[in-house]
């Protein structure tokens, strides 16, 4: 009897509420789509549309000011078979990526580990390491151009001061990419700050567990710190890679792709093809190849992540 009354009163309370809820649901749907509309339109106008268009361009011989003729996969064939600059630019870009990403990650990790030792003046150190990240890339390129200056630059004068021969830095075919890798380490502060935040989030009880088992600092690092940090390392590797594969400003301002194409970064080559030589079709094909390379590399890192990235708990991350 009581139960029935309860049931009835619940139903009675639910009835108007249900219709009101569906009113809310309708309202959410309307406003939800409205609010997401700019982003959706942007996705279509500035991403999907251009992607389809560039795929089509890439199968034509189109250059600005001439007619567009469909040539199928000719651009891609030409790239692989007849264009030594394509493979050169690919090599240069990968060389730079392989040099600068791991080096940057290791340096950033070391800095973060040190900063995490309860040092005094943490805020000051953090600021000092982060400041170079803020320098606009054009000003950065200008500054390093001057630092690398073989005659009056800082580096060569320091080397000569201690009796070492100087280097031609970015003006030498062999030293150019290593020089730019060195330059990239000036910007490790970003990853270091991310790592530091990650390190501060490692639960203290994990370290205590190692201590109870009689483990030392090395064990703590190997069994707690490193595994806990793998998701952050993973994030930084992927983001770093996507960034280095798209280097442009340094090549444009500092080296103009030289000497002898030693710094012909991929995007710089693409820019040249598209905007100096007006070969839009070929440049679009270059863009798609880069896209496929980035996808493949990212997939590779993602796949490998199964073996080395450790997520605390399931489905968390």
């Amino acid at each position: 009897m009581n139960a029935v009354a309860d049931e009835l009163s619940v139903n009675a309370a639910q009835l108007p509420r249900k219709t009101r809820l569906s009113g809310i649901a309708r309202m959410e749907r309307k406003w939800g789509i409205l609010f997401a509309l700019p982003a959706m339109l942007g996705f279509i106008i500035f991403v999907v549309g251009p992607m389809i268009a560039s795929l089509i361009f890439s199968m034509t011989d189109w250059s600005i000011g001439s007619d567009m003729k469909f040539t199928g996969l000719e651009n891609y064939r030409a790239m692989a078979a007849d264009d030594p600059l394509f493979s050169k630019s690919l090599f240069v870009t990968l060389y730079y990526t392989i040099g600068s990403v791991p080096l940057g990650i290791m340096a950033a990790f070391l800095i973060a580990m040190l900063l995490n030792q309860k040092v005094k003046g943490l805020a000051i150190f953090r600021t000092v390491y982060y400041l170079p990240v803020l320098v606009p890339s054009i000003a950065n390129s200008m500054l390093w151009l001057w630092l690398f200056n073989p005659d009056f630059g800082l580096f060569n004068s320091m080397l000569r001061n201690v009796g070492l021969p100087g280097s031609q830095w970015i003006y030498s075919e062999t030293a150019a990419i290593p020089s730019l890798i060195l330059m990239s380490t000036w910007g490790v502060g970003n990853a270091a700050v991310i790592f530091l935040a990650g390190l501060q989030g490692v639960p203290g009880h994990l370290y205590e567990a190692v201590e109870v088992d009689g483990g030392g600092a090395l064990r703590k690092f190997w069994h707690v710190t490193l595994p806990s940090m793998t998701p952050t390392i993973f994030f930084n590797v992927v983001m770093g890679m996507i960034g280095t594969l798209q280097v442009f400003d340094q090549a444009y301002v500092m080296t103009n792709g030289g000497p002898n194409n030693a710094t012909l970064f991929y995007i710089f080559y693409l820019y040249r093809k598209a905007f100096s030589e007006a070969q839009m079709g070929y440049a679009a094909a270059l863009a798609w190849v880069l896209f496929l390379i980035i996808m493949a590399l990212t997939a590779l890192v993602f796949r490998s992540s199964r073996f080395w990235v450790y997520y605390e708990g399931e489905g968390k991350g």
């Binding site: 939800g32 609010f35 997401a36 996705f43 500035f46 440049a283 896209f291 990212t298």
Partner: peptide, 29 residues
Amino acid sequence: LKWPGRNLVFGLILSTLMLPYAVTLIPTF
């Protein structure tokens, strides 16, 4: 806000993080 297809749309937009700007550069120009 709940609306049909929301998570799919969000996933698609998020995936553009991996897209090199070079791919859309030329047609946008």
